[in-house]
Computed example of a mutant assay.
Amino acid sequence: MALEITIERSAQLKQKPDENKLGFGQYYTDHMFILEYTEGKGWHSGRVVPYQNISLDPAAKVFHYGQTVFEGMKAYRTEDGIKLFRPKKNFERLNKSNARLSIPHLDEELAYEGLIKLLDVDREWVPSAEGTSLYIRPFIIATEPALGVNPSLNYLFMIIMSPVGAYYAEGVNPVKIHVESHFVRAVAGGVGEAKTAGNYAAGLNAQEEAKDRGYSQVLWLDGVHRKYIEEVGSMNVFFKINGVVVTPQLNGSILNGITRNSVITLLKHWDVPVEERRISIDELIEAHRNGQLEEAFGTGTAAVISPIGELSYNDEKYVINEGKTGELSSKIYDTITGIQKGTVEDPFGWLVSLD
């Protein structure tokens, strides 16, 4: 029997923010979705409720052993109604993170149904201003109050939503990135390919240092050799070198980005040469010196495409494409955001309609 999802509507709705001043992740919709897990009972008590604080025992395992995973996706207001971009890929990836963190498998169809019901209740929160969307954050936390080092017996799966503008203050203009050569974020065999909080906590120190130097983000090198490029703090990364687009291959410490996959699919659709392989920082610097590093950009749900205009490595600065957004970066951005907004043909069936 399918699990019934109940809906409790908020008695007092919030005042919606100015769509032209949203920032990123600063406002939250009127409702949230909750699903509980109890050992021996499974996932149960699915419900849409008013957005609210949650109460947890101080011994809840999420606080002590970091058993938590999350996802990020977006909803868009188009001329044909509200659309989602590849949402089932997010729930599929969530379960891969679950497996690595010893969190019970989540019924992906149930999670999707909960999302659709939540979106339907809060549909008026989907913004329509240029460059805006409704950011959706599904996540799971371990809630069993026990201090033994073993997987929790109880969990909460929740979805919260936030109307957002551009992730970076630069918008779609090129950002400056610092290549990190001291700190290590992840190694193959660890949890680098899982979307879990610890991966992001591991990067905060380096990210703050980079910002103090005037850089938007950190480009991570591998944790063993400290020479092979992995990803930017919140994005996968691509380089156009002498006409060929190169992105680091998935190796167990790099997130399998859904936007990354979408970009690769687009490039192949356009017959643009693309390679998923190991690439060293030395190869990248050499390509820059030879005039072959034509473009660089990051990809992710939050920013979609973020052109990279400058890299800093070993106290040297390497300006890419004169610090301007490249032709290919612009084409990819315009195509993906156009598909998301329903203004560009979607030949891949990526868009899912709420109605």
Rank of each mutant, 00 (worst) to 15 (best):
I82M: 13
L101H: 10
P87Q: 07
L94H: 02
L94N: 04
R100H: 13
E113W: 10
R100K: 15
A111F: 10
P87G: 10
S102Y: 03
E113S: 12
F85S: 06
N90P: 06
F85C: 05
P104E: 12
K83R: 15
H105C: 02
L84C: 11
S102F: 05
K88I: 00
E109D: 15
D107L: 11
S97W: 12
E113T: 08
A99Q: 10
S97F: 08
K83E: 15
E92F: 00
G81S: 15
S102H: 04
I82F: 12
H105E: 01
E108F: 00
K96L: 10
F91Y: 11
N95G: 04
N90E: 04
R93W: 06
D107F: 08
G81D: 15
A99D: 11
L84D: 11
L84G: 14
D107V: 06
L94D: 05
Y112Q: 03
A111Q: 11
I103Y: 12
R100G: 14
L84K: 14
R86P: 01
S102A: 07
A99M: 12
L110G: 06
S97M: 14
L94K: 03
P104I: 08
K83D: 09
Y112C: 01
K88H: 01
N90R: 10
R86H: 00
I82D: 10
K89H: 07
Y112K: 01
Y112I: 11
L110T: 06
E109Q: 15
E108W: 01
K89G: 05
N98K: 06
L110F: 07
L84P: 09
F91N: 04
N98R: 02
N98H: 03
Y112G: 05
K88M: 07
H105P: 00
N98S: 04
P104R: 04
N95S: 01
P87T: 12
L101K: 14
L110E: 11
R86T: 02
N98V: 05
F85M: 12
R86V: 02
P104A: 11
E113N: 13
F85E: 08
Y112S: 05
R100P: 06
L106A: 02
S97Q: 09
A111E: 09
N90M: 07
A99K: 14
L110Q: 08
N90H: 06
Y112A: 07
N90W: 06
K88C: 00
